[in-house]
């Protein structure tokens, strides 16, 4: 199958990831479109036989990071370190909505990316590390922190939520 057909084949999965990453269908499709355009422009750099899907997700990650950076002040809140500040009572009530959409959107972007690449897109940890351009250990720590935050956020039991506030 030629390269162009191979790009088309990956659109549904790029859309799924972008939708979950940005939380907004229109913004997600813009991101997919930018990714495809960049992929076409650089298609000659892609080595046939290597993983086209991972390469496309790498391009999308780079574009997404630029967007987050461009969002300016917002980006500071997205830093991993800032994310470990305990969440307060009001935020927890909102998190208790059992809403995976909301819970995912509340994660810092770095943790969200890892959780989605692994949990939704089924990349291995080493592949996720390559896509994000970070060491494997960083992927594992973001995964662990993100999953714990999600777990607390999705938990229906008041007792479990109280534990976080403590």
């Amino acid at each position: 199958m030629d390269r162009q057909a191979r790009l088309i084949e990956h659109i549904p999965r790029l859309r799924r990831y972008a939708r979950a990453l940005t939380g907004e269908a229109a913004r997600a499709d813009d991101l997919v479109q930018d990714t495809l355009e960049r992929a076409l422009a650089k298609l000659d750099l892609w080595r046939p036989g290597s993983d086209l899907r991972a390469w496309l997700f790498t391009l999308m990650h780079n574009l997404f990071v630029n967007q987050v950076r461009a969002a300016g002040a917002q980006a500071h809140c997205d830093l991993d370190e800032a994310a470990d500040v305990p969440v307060g009572g009001n935020q927890l009530d909102a998190l208790a909505l059992h809403d995976i959409h909301a819970a995912i959107a509340r994660l810092p972007a770095e943790q969200r990316e890892v959780i989605l690449l692994v949990g939704l897109e089924q990349f291995g940890y080493a592949e996720a590390a390559r896509i994000l351009g970070v060491p494997l250990g960083t992927v594992m720590s973001r995964l662990a922190r993100g999953r714990e935050r999600l777990r607390q956020g999705l938990s229906a039991e008041p007792a479990a939520r109280l534990k976080v506030v403590k």
Binding site: R3, Q4, L7, I8, I11, P12, R13, R15, R16, R19, A20, D29, V32, Q33, L36, E37, A39, L40, L43, I100, H101, I104, L120
Partner: peptide, 20 residues
């Protein structure tokens, strides 16, 4: 929550963007 995106028709601009 997100698998539904796999089944949606792909919008034309995206197909166009994937075209050489």
């Amino acid at each position: 929550a997100f698998d539904a995106a796999l089944n949606e028709p792909v919008p034309l601009p995206l197909l166009r963007a994937a075209r050489l």
